[in-house]
Design a protein around this nucleic acid. Structure first.
Lengths: 215, 215
DNA sequence: CGTTCAATTGAGAATTCTCAAGGTCAGTGG
DNA sequence: CCACTGACCTTGAGAATTCTCAATTGAACG
């Protein structure tokens, strides 16, 4: 288990000159937060990450439709705010009165370690996946899935899913029947066309409609 | 974006002497996989991580009830197999014919970087959360949630959730009504007792029954 | 005592699951 | 050549679960 001291004794590539920290934050100095107080918001520059000393923090994202999805609750000892890239992808707020301790980062240039980048990339993927999975509509989940797969074949309007319906179902938390019905709906709406004997090859007919479904 | 060469030119703390790699793997040598071939299994020692060159890989876990949950599909360029700890928490199999390239790690001692540990811990949490969220029963999700919160108060049979029902709902992907109904069921079954004016303080009455629900 | 806020409960609508049946395609063997 | 088989996908119908919308409860507070 990591403790505050591990980091304080081995500060991670501290900025060479003083910098502004996240709102209300000062280097290595405990921050007191009131209920619902914001620590950072989506789009802000990443200037620090944090460890919770007391209380609880909620990390969340807002979907395009205004729906809020909480990625995690952080309590005493938990770390948050370490992200891929130099911009916040989510919001951090105090659930109740809380205390947190900030640690400095310099944004993107700090994280030169390849392993760290890989881990952060996978973390980012896991989180966006969490967002998609939680969507309650089966059709939306499948739409998100197809989009995700399509993004891996940039510029191509046709690609092979490679996996069977059962794989898709276990990935999306649905049954194979519901997956098949969702594919059928997308086919009926002329958003995709399915090819191949096993119907695993997807041709995108209407990217906009697909994106609209995936929100 | 990271490329293979980034890592090959700066090998990450390569083992001082030759080691055995994950089954069928040799250092920096492409591995060819047949459909459904296993790369590693849960519980195995972590000896390498991988980048996909062709085909697709499924990363999954098995729930205690035998239910399979796929955490991610990895395709060309994706990395997988970098985990917290020195034991596999999941399975990796080829979805179809595939090629992957292994990279050496020495297990736990390699990852001395604090940031990396934090990132991996958060990744692990996000993944186990993903598992819980995908569970289709609302009661099970709430049970998992209470367990998760209880684990943060070891030895205590009573603790304060701190967050409102709406926070819980947005975390579990349910409505506040369904959350309330699930709490009521747990209360009726004498698994928990709710205290405080806002019913946010949980007293655990039957940990075994809770664990059974959470699976 | 009325107001407010959060939580709870109820009833009907909507969605997904379960179970069952039917379809297609490739491979196999008579 | 053709029936049979197995694997996989699709479709249908009823059961179960959750959502939506509305009303109710309970505690705190002026």
């Amino acid at each position: 288990m990591l403790h505050v001291h591990d980091l304080r004794q081995e500060p991670i590539q501290v900025p060479t000159r003083p910098r502004a920290f996240e709102p209300a934050a000062r280097a290595d100095q405990t921050i007191r937060l009131k209920q619902d107080q914001t620590i950072y918001s989506e789009g802000q520059k990443v200037l620090a990450f944090y460890q919770v000393e007391a209380g609880a923090i909620r990390i969340y994202r807002l979907m395009p439709d205004g729906h809020r999805h909480i990625l995690s609750f952080c309590v005493k000892g938990d770390w948050f705010g370490l992200e891929q890239g130099d911009r916040r992808a989510d919001f951090a707020e105090a659930v109740c009165e809380a205390r947190i301790r900030p640690f400095a980062t310099t944004g993107s240039s700090t994280f030169t370690n390849n392993l760290l980048n890989i881990a952060l990339a996978n973390l980012a993927k896991a989180q966006s996946r969490q967002m998609a999975m939680i969507e309650q509509s089966a059709l939306k989940r499948v739409a998100v899935f197809i989009q995700e797969m399509a993004e891996r074949h940039p510029g191509e309007s046709e690609f092979d899913l490679m996996m069977c319906r059962s794989d898709v179902a276990d990935y999306l938390g649905l049954t194979i029947e519901t997956v098949a019905r969702s594919f059928t709906k997308l086919r009926e709406r002329r958003i995709i066309r399915l090819k191949g004997k096993l119907q695993r090859c997807v041709q995108l007919l209407d990217r906009d409609a697909l994106a609209a479904l995936a929100l």
